[in-house]
Structures are given as structure tokens and as C-alpha cells.
């Protein structure tokens, strides 16, 4: 279970997150929905350690952790970015195997076996030797997902998983996320698409503009 308590974050004088509380229960999906500019991506970036919160607490299974620390022995958060951020100079296999070999110090063959399994499960069996630019948007997203899963995160976060894709791929993303839920993954999905959120989420957190005085 992931708990975020009293999270505050401002950029300069502009308050983005004011005392936000988030709970994601094990094996559930929480959707964070709101208009753009409401701070939902900032919230996700704080949880992923890409922004430093001004104040607040992060707990995983009741134990405090620092999302920005890179020296923890376990992965807490995995992220599938809006535009995937795959490494263009590496093949699909290399993208997936990089962190397991560099960070977890797995052997190359262990990492490759796992990458193969992940790709099989995601229907990308024959794509391992390709480079990201040879993939479609949906395939890139699944590679990004495989890359995140290879680090065995406790929580998987998605930033706008439908926005960089063809609208008719929305169903596919939905199936993918629900399948991972069946496999026992705890997931947090940031989206502006309320309809999509309703399809996948056990729980929805709506983030609204704080108040007009903060919006310029």
C-alpha cells in the first residue's frame, strides 16, 4: 500500500499541491483525474522522485521512504511516461535489460530471460532486436511498461497513458492495465480522461484547481 500524506509543492509563489493525501491499496488501481495544470502530473513526479516535495510523507506498506533516493535496495515506484522516454540508441532488449544489469547487477542472461518473458506477456515476442523508432506508439508504450516491470516495482505509475496514442488504442491500454491488476500489480494512473479512469480504476482522486488566486 502506498500512502502519501500532506504533500505540499510550490513552484515559486505558485502553490501546485496543497496538503494532498493519496492512498493506493495493494492490487488496486487509483486514477488521478483533473484538468491540465491542476497538478496531477506534479503529484506523480513527486511520488516518482522526479520533483522534491516541499513537505509531506511517503509510506510504502507503512514504512516511510524517500522517492528521490536512488540508493535504496528495492524499487518502489516504476513509471511509464507519457512519451515513454525509451532510449533510442538501444534495442528493445537493451532498453529492458539496462537497469536490471546496471542497478540490480543481474547477469546478462538472467536479464535477457526476464526481458523475453516480459515481451512475450506483452505480445512483443518478435520485437526484442528492434530499435524504438521501428515501433508503433502502442508498442513503444508496452516496451516502456516492460522496462519498468523489469525492475520489480511495488507501484506502477502511468502519466497520461492514452494521450500519446491513437484513440482506438485506448481499449488496448485498458486491457493491459487490467491484466496487470489481475497479476497483482498495484497501479496509479494519471489521466485527464474521466471515462477512461472510470473503466479501469477502483478509486478515483479528482484534483481540481486549488483556487483562482493561484492560477495566473
Amino acid at each position: 500500500m502506498l500512502e502519501v500524506k500532506n504533500l505540499k509543492k510550490s513552484f515559486g509563489s505558485r502553490v501546485i499541491l496543497d496538503d494532498v493525501n493519496v492512498t493506493v491499496k495493494d492490487r488496486e488501481i487509483l486514477s488521478i483525474v483533473g484538468p491540465s495544470g491542476a497538478g496531477k502530473t506534479t503529484l506523480l513526479r513527486c511520488i516518482a522522485g522526479l520533483e522534491t516535495a516541499d513537505s509531506g510523507e511517503f509510506l510504502i506498506d507503512g514504512v516511510a521512504f524517500d522517492p528521490a533516493a536512488s540508493d535504496t535496495s528495492e524499487s518502489v515506484i516504476g513509471v511509464v511516461f507519457q512519451d515513454f522516454n525509451l532510449f533510442p540508441h538501444l534495442t528493445v532488449f537493451e532498453n529492458i535489460m539496462l537497469a536490471p544489469t546496471m542497478v540490480l547487477k543481474n547477469t546478462k542472461s538472467e536479464a535477457q530471460d526476464e526481458a523475453k518473458t516480459l515481451l512475450n506477456n506483452l505480445g512483443l515476442d518478435d520485437k526484442g532486436e528492434l530499435y524504438p523508432h521501428q515501433l508503433s506508439g502502442g508498442q513503444k508504450q508496452r516496451v516502456a511498461l516492460a522496462r519498468a516491470l523489469a525492475m520489480h516495482p511495488k507501484i506502477l505509475c502511468y502519466d497520461e497513458p492514452t494521450s500519446a496514442l491513437d484513440p482506438n488504442l485506448r481499449r488496448e491500454v485498458e486491457k493491459l492495465i487490467l491484466k496487470l491488476k489481475q497479476d497483482g500489480m498495484t497501479q496509479l494512473v494519471v489521466t485527464h480522461d474521466m471515462e477512461f479512469a472510470k473503466m479501469i480504476a477502483d478509486d478515483i482522486l479528482e484534483v481540481n484547481y486549488l483556487d483562482n488566486s493561484n492560477q495566473k
Binding site: 516518482a48 522526479l50 515506484i77 511516461f81 532510449f87 537497469a99
Partner: peptide
Amino acid sequence: GQYEGAKVLRLSYFQTIRKV
């Protein structure tokens, strides 16, 4: 995004520079 992609995979600064 390349740095962020590497960071959430917990690559160190040095690993990110070298490999990514």
C-alpha cells in the same frame, strides 16, 4: 526525458551519463 527515464530506473548519474 532521457535523464528522467534513467532516474526512475534508478541508474546513478554516472551510469546515466555513460550508458544513456
